[in-house]
Nucleic acid binder design. Sequence first.
RNA 1: GGGCUUGUAGCUCAGUUGGUUAGAGCGCCUGCUUGACACGCAGGAGGUCACAGAUUCGAGUUCUGUCAAGCCCACCA
Length: 888
Amino acid sequence: MQIEKVYEPQRFEPHWAQWWIDSGIFHASQRALPHVFSLVIPPPNVTGSLHIGHMLEHTEIDVTIRWHRMCGDNTLWLPGADHAGIATQMVVERKLAEEGLDRRTLGRDKFIERVWEWKAQYGDQIKRQMIRLGASCDWSRERFTLDPGLSRAVREVFVRLFEKGLIYRGEYMVNWCPRCRTALSDLEVKSAETQGHLWHIRYPISSTTAAHVVVATTRPETMLGDTAVAVNAKDPRYFDLHGRTVDLPLMNRQIPVILDDLADPQFGTGAVKVTPAHDTNDFEAGKRHNLPRIKVIDEGGRMTAEAGPYAGLDRFEARRRVVEDLERLGLLEKIEPYTLAIGKCDRCGTVVEPLISTQWFVRTKPLAEKAIAVVETGRIQFIPENWTKTYFEWMYNIRDWCISRQLWWGHRIPAWHCQECAEIIVAREAPTSCTRCGSSQLVQDPDVLDTWFSSALWPFSTLGWPDETEDLKMFYPTSLLITGFDILFFWVARMVMMGCEFMGDIPFRQVYIHGLVRDAERQKMSKTRGNTIDPLVVTEKYGTDAVRMALLLGAAPGTDIVLSEDRMESTRAFANKIWNAARLLFVNMERSGVEPWLPNRLETFRPEAGPSIEVSVEDRWIFSRLNTCAEHVNHAIEQYRYHEAAQLLWHFFWHEFCDWYLELKKPSFQENAGINADWRNVLAAFETALRLLHPAMPFLTEELWQRLSNGRPTRPVSIALAEYPQYGEQHTDFAAEREIGILQEVVTLARTLRTEMKLDPKLQLQGTLHARGDALEIARRHADAMRRLSGVSLEFSPDPPLAGAASRSTSQFDLVLHVPKTQMEAQRRRLEKENDQLSKNIASLENQLSDESSLSRKPEQVVANMRAKLAEYKSQLAKNKAALNALE
RNA sequence: GGGCUUGUAGCUCAGUUGGUUAGAGCGCCUGCUUGACACGCAGGAGGUCACAGAUUCGAGUUCUGUCAAGCCCACCA
C-alpha cells in the first residue's frame, strides 16, 4: 500500500470534491425511503463570493446532511442563490461607476442585462466554492430566486394575497433611502445612537408683539414643512394658545395650534412642531387634524420648491442654513446636545428620510397569527430555544410590510396600470386589456418586490410550487433550517408566514440558529476591520478538513465561533495525525503482505486457529471504546452539538486509537504474516473510525477509505454512502475496558514516576507491581506491553510494598520503581504536596461525616461514597507518611 | 424604555437532570530526532467558577440582587 509521506490535502481535496459531484452521489432520491431528511440552503446573495460565515453555516449543514445520508435517510440539501435586490443592484452600479457609467443612462433593460452578467459570474463562483468546500448538495436541484419557476411562484403568491385583501397599495409614510432612491421596510432601517442637538426655536404667536411659543426639534430643516404646532390639551402652560395660530418663521405662514397627545408636557417645552410630510408621528397627527402635508424634501434628499429660499439645497446643508437664519433673527432660544437614534439604510448607511409615497404593503397580522400558533404548539422548534421568545416578540408586534422597491433588479410587481382609466390590474400574466374600460394602454408597475418576498417562498418555490410536484410531496415540510440570527425576522419569520399560508403547513420542523464567526480577539469579522478570513485562502493553506474541524470545535450552540490561525493549525495537526495513523497501517500492511481491505462494518474477527482462542483484549477494548464514541457522536450531531461531536472524535482518534490502541498493536504487525485476525480487527476499527469522522472531515476520510479499497469496486462507491456507525450493545465490553484501564494506569504511573525522578528516558528500569485481587492477574498478562510503553520491567507481587520505595498508588495497586535512594528527592516533594491535599480532603470529609443531622438527610449512596473515599485517603496518607519516614 | 445572551486556567471555550479532588484545545514549563507523525512523544504547572445574598445535607450548576460586556427590538419632538 503506497502512501505519501506527508499529509498534503491540496493534492486530493479538489479531486474528491469534483468526483462527488460527477458521480451524483448527493442526488436525492424520489424513491420512498423510510426516512426523509430535507433542508434548503439559506441562499447566499449573488453579490460576491462566500465568506467564512457561509463556510461555518455550510459546514454545520454538511455535517448534518452527510450524517443523515450515512444513516440511510433519503437526504436532500437543496442549493441555490438569492438575487438580493438592493445589494446586487448596488454592487453592479458601483462597478458601472468605475466604467464611468450610470444605470439611468444605460436604461433599464441594458442595466438588467449587466446584472445578469454579474449574477452568472458570481453565481458560478459561489457554486465552485461550495463544491470545493465539500458541500454535499444536490446540484441537479439548484435554484435561483429569479428563475422562471420561482418567479411564477412569486406572482402566484402576490395575486393570491391581493385577492385575499392581504396585499394593498396606498400612500403612507415610509422609510426612504435618498441614495438608493427606494422605499425600505422597517427591517432594512438600522437605528444608530448618534450625538445630535435639540434646537429650541421660537415661533411667534400671531397678532402679538412679544409672545412666542418655543418648540424643540432635532431636525430644524423640517420646520419649513410645518403645518401646525401641537400642545397637550391638559397642559396649563398653553391654555391661552388654544384656538390661536403662530407665525412660522422663515416661511411667512400662519399655522394653527392644535391640541394633541402627540405633545408630552413632560418633554422639552411641551410644544411640538408638526411636519406631517416628514415625520411618522406628525403624519398621524396630521391625519387626525386634517393638516396639509407640505413636502419640503424630495426623493434625493434635496429641498423642494416648497422650501422657498432653501429649494435645491441638500437636507443637511438646509439644516445649517435654517439654524443660521433663525439665529440671526433671534429666534433660536437655545441648543442642547442630545443623543438620538438615527435610522440608516441597512445597505448604504445613508440617513433614511421618512417620506410619503405610494407603495405596496402586505397586511401581516393575519399571516402572523398562524406563524405564532405553529411555534406555540411546538410544531416548529428553535434551537437554542431562547430564540423562540425573540421570534414571538417580533410576531406579536408585527407591522405591515412595505414590499415595493423603486429598483430595477428583482421581481417586477405583477400589477398593470391602465393609462386611460387608472385602473390597477393585478394578474399572474400580463393582461391585454383593462378589465374596467377595455383599453389596451396598460403599463406594468415599474417597481420590484422586496428581495425577501421571494426568499419567503424558498422552501416551497424551490420544490416546484405552485405545481404539485413529486419533490414537494416528498420533501415539504423540510426537516431543518440552519441559519444566522441576523435574518430571523427578514427571512425565517416570513417563511413561516408564507409556508403556513400557501402550503397550509410549516416550512421546516426545526430551526438551528448558529453564531457569528469572530477572530482571535473575539472581534466581528468585517472588511473594514481587515480581519476577514477568506475560506479559499485558509482552505488552501490548512486543508478544508482542518478548517471545517476548527469551525466545528468552536460551534457550541448559542455561542459565537472563534476562528484563528492557531486553531486551524491545531486541527491540521489532527488531520495530519489521522494521515500518519493510516501511514503506520499502510506501511505495515505492505511489509506484512496484507492486501488493502475494506471491512465496511465493525465486527470482531477471531484468529484462524478457531473460536476457542480469545480475541485479543486490545481489539475488544477498542471496539468497545469505538462503540461508546459512536453512541455519543450520534447523540451530539442529532442535537446539533457540533463542538461536542468534534471533540469526541478528536479525543477518541488521537488519545485512544493512536495513543493506546495502535501502540499496543504494533508488535502484531509482523513481517509477511499476511492478513490475520489482528489485521482484520485493526482495519475494522480504523475503517469504522473513518466513517465516524467522515461528516466532519469528508476529504481525508474519503481519500483513505478509497485507498483501503484500492480501486476495487466496492458496494458503496464512496464513504459518503457507507453506513454511519451506530451504537451496538454487543460491542460494549466492560471487562476489556477494565483490563486496558489497569494497563493504562500502570503505564502512566510508571512514566510519571520516572519523569518525576528525572531518570534518563532511555534507561530500562526494574520495578514491582504490588497489586490487589484480580488486578494482579490482569497486570501480569500485560507485562510485555507495560515494559514496551513505560520502559519498566515489572515483577508482580500480591504483598504490600515496603516503605521507602519510589512508589505511586491507586486503589488497585502500588507501583514501585527500583531506583537508588539518592534519586528520591523529587519523590519526597511530591509526597509532601500530595499529603497536604489529602489532609485537607480528609478533614473536610470527616467534618461532613461527623455532622449527624446533615448526614441523616444525605442519600445513602452519597454517604457510602464519602466513607469509601475517606478510607482511601487515609490509607493513602498513611502510606505516604511511611514512605516519607523511610526517606529520612 | 423593553427583551435576550455572556462572565469558569494566560487565551478561546466545555461542564446534560445540583453529588467525591471542576475539564479540553491553544499557549507556557521540563525532558525526548523512540522506524506513522517535532503538524510528534512523555510528564507537568496553572482556577476564591464576576460579586453579594438565598434555597439545600450539599451550588460552577437553582433563585434574587449588584457589577461588567455584547446583541436585538422601540415613532417620544
